[in-house]
Design a protein around this nucleic acid. Structure first.
Lengths: 149, 149
DNA sequence: CCATAATAGTTGTTTATGCAACTATTCAAA
DNA sequence: TTTGAATAGTTGCATAAACAACTATTATGG
């Protein structure tokens, strides 16, 4: 009995501590092996800017599931590295738009390759259906915890 | 085309940033709502000690998928809070065994309830089969990235 | 128009993570 | 038995997270 008490809690433990962290570490390692000195968190910001340059910080919060202070500091660090630049909105003085530098734009192709290679390593022996299920379940979990207050 | 380039990378983004973080935040919030001043990371250590008291730090590394410095500091903080105590092994002077305090032992029942309640909130509308698939896939991902160097 | 609410972003503090480099102890092989 | 490898744990440093409290600006309702 006592052994089964945490069955549900255990799922948290599995999801949070294991696969996600392992993928992040491997992605980071593969970046470093390619001579890329960016963190996986910084990459996740660039990823959204490659899809749509000039997002503001609030939009980056929404897309990366981070809070505003986290984005402020990630942008600080990316700016220090010369990868992005803040540009104040002309029409709304509260807003910063974030733009990629040329260097950052040139990183896209290289990191696409590494990200895909990493996911290939991670997903060996897993079917498309299983991946679909995982994505759907994690989306549901997220929705359950965010739409409900 | 360009829109599909990150399809695989996107899975990382989904797994890592979204569901896991949402569960952790909700668990933390539910702890606080119950007046429990422990972090979700500290809880994950206690969780393994409740199942088996007197683990050493290396065993906690293996069970929680953290490195040694992380465990050192988590144990430091738990010790400061009076929740665990280090006891040096008599037979191997390199080893510390970690034991729960009475206070920590008494936290078990309260936090079981909260952990299970949190997972119930998270898993609304998700079937047992789907949960099994997620657990298996994430285990495979972990194995893929750790058994292969 | 003005007071108040909402929004965008920043700063401070605490906690946690990863990696590298380190000490201390034990093991193992010549 | 001694030298070198392996193991357990700690410390330093940089990055990142959550939360609270803050400033500045814009939107809204009387």
């Amino acid at each position: 009995m006592a052994n089964n008490q945490f069955k549900r809690g255990e799922l948290y433990s599995v999801i949070n501590a294991m696969a996600a962290a392992a993928i992040a570490r491997r992605m980071q390692k593969n970046f470093r092996a390619a001579g890329l000195e960016i963190t996986i968190e910084q990459w996740s910001i660039l990823y959204h800017l490659w899809k749509e340059d000039g997002l503001n910080q609030q939009q980056l919060c929404d897309k990366t599931f981070r809070d505003k202070p986290s984005i402020t500091r990630l942008i600080d660090n990316l700016a220090k590295l010369g990868l992005v630049e803040r540009k104040a909105s002309e029409t709304d003085k509260r807003v910063n738009y974030i733009f990629l530098s040329t260097i950052a734009k040139n990183l896209q192709d290289q990191t696409i390759e590494i990200a895909n290679q990493t996911m290939d390593e991670a997903l060996v022996g897993i079917t498309k259906n299983e991946i679909e299920t995982v994505k759907n379940v994690l989306q549901k979990v997220y929705d359950n915890l965010t739409t409900n207050p």
